[in-house]
C-alpha cells in the first residue's frame, strides 16, 4: 500500500536530508535531541507529503515543514535533557580545517545561537540559507518589513552576545 508514494518520498528526503540536519543543528544542542527532532520532522513531512504539489520546490517545502516542526509542533522529549556536548558527538570539526581562533569563534557563535528564542533561530537559519525576505515573510507569516527589522535586531543581538 502506498509503496510508490513511500518510495518517491524517501528518495527525495534522502537527497535533501541536510536541510533537516541543519534545522536540528540550530534547535537542538545534543545528539539525542537532534535525532528526535530529525525523526519528528521526517514524520511531519511524510504526513504532509500527499498534499505536496510539484509546483513548489521540494526543498522550499521542506524548509517550511521543518521550521514549523521545530518552532511549533515538536514536543521536546525527556531525552533532550541530557547535556551531552553537541560538538563532541558527531559534528566534530576537523582541526586541520580551521585555525584555532576560528574554531573557538564558531563554537561561541553556535552557543550564542542556542541562546536565541525559537523565532530568532528561524531567522538565523533562513539568513544562513540565503533566503530572501519574501520567503522569510511567507515562512513565518509576518510582513517583509517586519522580517527585515527582526533580522537586523537578531544579528545585532548575536553580535552583542559574541562581543560580551
Amino acid at each position: 500500500m502506498n509503496t510508490e508514494l513511500e518510495h518517491s518520498f524517501v528518495e527525495l528526503l534522502e537527497k535533501h536530508q541536510n536541510i533537516i540536519h541543519k534545522v536540528c543543528r540550530l534547535y537542538t544542542n545534543n545528539y539525542d535531541a537532534h535525532n528526535d527532532l530529525f525523526q519528528e520532522i521526517t514524520i511531519q513531512l511524510w504526513k504532509a507529503y500527499p498534499k505536496f504539489r510539484g509546483d513548489a520546490k521540494f526543498s522550499t517545502w521542506m524548509y517550511r515543514v521543518g521550521l514549523n516542526t521545530a518552532i511549533t509542533l515538536y514536543r521536546k522529549s525527556k531525552r533532550s535533557i541530557k547535556t551531552q556536548d553537541f560538538e563532541g558527538v558527531s559534528f566534530k570539526i576537523k582541526a586541520e580545517d580551521y585555525d584555532d581562533t576560528e574554531e573557538e569563534q564558531l563554537k561561541l557563535l553556535y552557543k550564542a545561537i542556542h541562546k536565541l528564542n525559537d523565532i530568532e533561530k528561524a531567522l538565523v537559519f533562513l539568513y544562513l540559507e540565503d533566503k530572501d525576505y519574501r520567503e522569510i515573510s511567507a515562512t513565518l507569516g509576518i510582513s517583509e518589513v517586519n522580517a527585515r527589522v527582526k533580522m537586523n535586531r537578531t544579528k545585532t543581538k548575536l553580535r552583542n552576545i559574541l562581543n560580551a
Partner: peptide, 26 residues
C-alpha cells in the same frame, strides 16, 4: 561548508522513520 559534516542517513533508516508515530503537540 557544513554539508559534509552531517550524518548521512540511508534509505532504509529514513524509511523506518516514516513508519514511526508522531509525538507532536498537535
Amino acid at each position: 561548508k557544513s554539508d559534509s559534516k552531517y550524518p548521512k542517513l540511508t534509505y532504509d533508516e529514513i524509511y523506518k522513520m516514516i513508519l514511526k508515530k508522531s509525538s507532536s503537540i498537535v
